[in-house]
């Protein structure tokens, strides 16, 4: 019976700040009808339009009778539902790593977080000097550049 995509959802939250670079042009069906950005935590109204949670929350909190921007239908709170299918579809969209073009890796929206844990072009904070260093340069930084290392070196020479 498993015909529909039942891939386990990897990251529980999409990062709404990230400006994804989609491999294929983002289809309108995956855009929030309110702000036009990719659907983040999608909700569907009774009129069959999809909104990011942030936008539907804004609308229902700021207006006494929120209306759908597409068809002007009144949005009733008890008829809105969390669109888990759409959410899964968005999580499966192909994107380039946010560190493209340096990083050539292609992944999905849902797997980006995992990739960034190991992406060589992701900046990390050096836990010695707090400087931001590309992951690929960290080894070199710790061995030859890090100010903390220099202090240690100085200290060794003095003693």
């Amino acid at each position: 019976l498993i015909r529909q995509n039942s891939t386990a959802i990897v990251s529980t939250e999409l990062n709404p700040i990230v400006d994804y670079m989609f491999v294929a042009t983002l289809e309108d069906r995956y855009k929030c009808v309110c702000c036009g950005y990719v659907l983040h935590d999608p909700y569907q109204t009774a009129c069959g339009h999809r909104f990011s949670k942030k936008c539907i929350d804004n609308m229902t909190q700021s207006m006494s009778q929120p209306k759908c921007p597409i068809d002007s239908q009144i949005i009733k709170l008890d008829e809105i539902f969390k669109d888990a299918c759409c959410r899964r579809e968005v999580l499966n969209l192909q994107i380039f790593c946010i560190n493209s073009p340096d990083c050539k890796f292609q992944t999905t929206v849902g797997h980006l977080k995992d990739h960034l844990e190991e992406c060589l072009f992701q900046t990390e904070q050096c836990d010695q000097c707090n400087e931001n260093i590309l992951r690929k340069d960290m080894k070199h930084h710790l061995e030859y550049v890090c100010s903390y290392r220099k202090e240690m070196y100085k200290f060794c020479k003095e003693s």
């Binding site: 069906r29 569907q44 009774a46 009129c47 069959g48 339009h49 999809r50 539902f81 669109d83 299918c85 759409c86």
Partner: peptide, 10 residues
């Protein structure tokens, strides 16, 4: 169950 009117229209 929620009516998926988006899917229905598509």
């Amino acid at each position: 169950l929620f009516p998926d009117n988006f899917a229905k229209r598509e």
